[in-house]
């Protein structure tokens, strides 16, 4: 163990430079966020993730945000276990009908002010599963969405860019 620890000290950090906030995401947010909320929350956000029936591909890339390369916590973004502690609800999946109620309840359990980020093509419009008897077809059909991050799945850098836009919102 000692060797592994020493080596971690010895080599330089693996962390990627900040990708900056995405233009498109900033534009989308400009409409939905007010300044007061920003002063209240400062530059840190707690994120609660809900898988509303994804294929689990989106989750894999959300997990990657915590590895040494993306190290999401350095931006003041952190994942929390309870919706009661969360500012942001990060939702993936086409929202299956079987998950609709659970998603709604999670959203309702969050204190104001709160934002919803829909990550991935499925969360945007149901993706390839749109039109099935078993899906609601996109997060916005169930709860209001402030920001969409596209991709199938979105790459970690794209997720980061979108989430940073929340911090740097106008």
């Amino acid at each position: 163990m000692r060797r592994t620890l020493f080596e971690s000290f010895a080599h330089g950090p693996l962390t990627e430079p900040s990708p900056g906030a995405g233009e498109a995401e900033l534009a989308e947010l400009a409409q939905s966020v007010n300044r007061a909320a920003r002063t209240t929350l400062g530059r840190s956000l707690s994120i609660r993730q809900v898988d509303a029936g994804s294929c689990n591909g989106c989750e894999l890339e959300i997990h990657a945000l915590s590895n040494a390369f993306y190290d999401i916590e350095r931006f003041g973004l952190r994942f929390v276990a309870s919706p009661r502690h969360a500012d942001v609800l990060l939702v993936t999946g086409p929202v299956t009908k079987n998950m609709r109620e659970a998603l709604l309840r999670t959203y309702n359990a969050m204190p104001e002010p709160k934002w919803v980020v829909a990550a991935g093509t499925c969360a945007a419009n149901g993706g390839l599963f749109a039109g099935s008897y078993a899906v609601a077809g996109g997060v916005k059909n169930v709860i209001p969405v402030d920001l969409h991050i596209s991709g199938c799945p979105p790459r970690p850098v794209e997720l980061l860019r979108g989430l940073l836009a929340l911090l740097e919102r106008p």
């Binding site: 029936g53 994804s54 079987n98 998950m99 390839l128 599963f129 099935s132 078993a134 899906v135």
Partner: peptide, 11 residues
């Protein structure tokens, strides 16, 4: 289980 059921076979 079943919460992630998307109706793949029907599509």
């Amino acid at each position: 289980l079943g919460y992630a059921h998307k109706g793949v076979e029907s599509i």
